[in-house]
């Protein structure tokens, strides 16, 4: 990323919490969140496909909501909580419900698009914990996959909903009234 002007380029200290860990990174304002995650924080689970908002591979959760990390500057997100695919695992570090569902349903082939789907679906199920097949297919419509033909991904959305139900119930019973 040496453009010849880096020595004079402004940098800004950005504080973010990524997957529960606080970080402070010094980045130029033009640093896309996708690049900050991959290059500055070494979290290469977030993939970059098109870099202009079309494919969804770079999707991460910001304060719980899915967004495209190639369409925001890291500096704009100072003070936020970010979840990447690395943070979509279970509390004990084992596979999370969406990851497990992808394995169960054979919802990936090359895996390039998968991090974007995992984060998107993780965020989506918080909003709609029991989607119908039609809702599931609409939920993933903004992300592209060149391998699977989508059917197994739609099935994985529903499977994940099933798998996370006990987890959510347990979480609710541990901290009553605290909805996430």
């Amino acid at each position: 990323m040496n453009t010849g002007s880096t020595n004079t380029e402004q940098t800004v200290a950005v504080s973010v919490t990524v997957n529960g860990t606080p970080y402070v990174v010094d980045v130029p304002p033009r640093r896309l969140l996708s690049d900050a995650l991959r290059h500055d924080l070494g979290l290469t689970g977030t993939h970059v496909g098109c870099e202009h908002g079309v494919c969804g591979a770079c999707t991460v959760l910001v304060d719980g909501a899915p967004i495209r990390s190639c369409l925001v500057f890291a500096v704009s997100l100072d003070g936020t909580q970010i979840t990447t695919v690395e943070g979509c695992c279970a509390d004990d570090g084992e596979m999370g419900p969406v990851q497990q569902a992808f394995q169960d349903c054979h919802a990936l082939q090359c895996g390039f698009c998968t991090p974007g789907f995992i984060t998107l679906i993780t965020g989506y199920l918080e909003d709609n914990p029991a989607p119908t097949p039609a809702e599931a297919s609409e939920a993933i419509a903004g992300n592209l996959c060149r391998c699977t033909g989508y059917q197994n991904i739609v099935a994985a959305v529903q499977r994940a909903a099933e798998l996370r139900r006990p987890v959510v119930e347990e979480r609710a019973s541990r901290s009553p009234g605290e909805d996430r």
Partner: peptide, 26 residues
Amino acid sequence: VLAGGQSLVPLMSMRLAAPEHLVDIN
């Protein structure tokens, strides 16, 4: 002005826009 950036950021990435100053209103 930088609002959501969902149109401006791709334009900047493609170098169709190259503002020297961004005013982030978020």
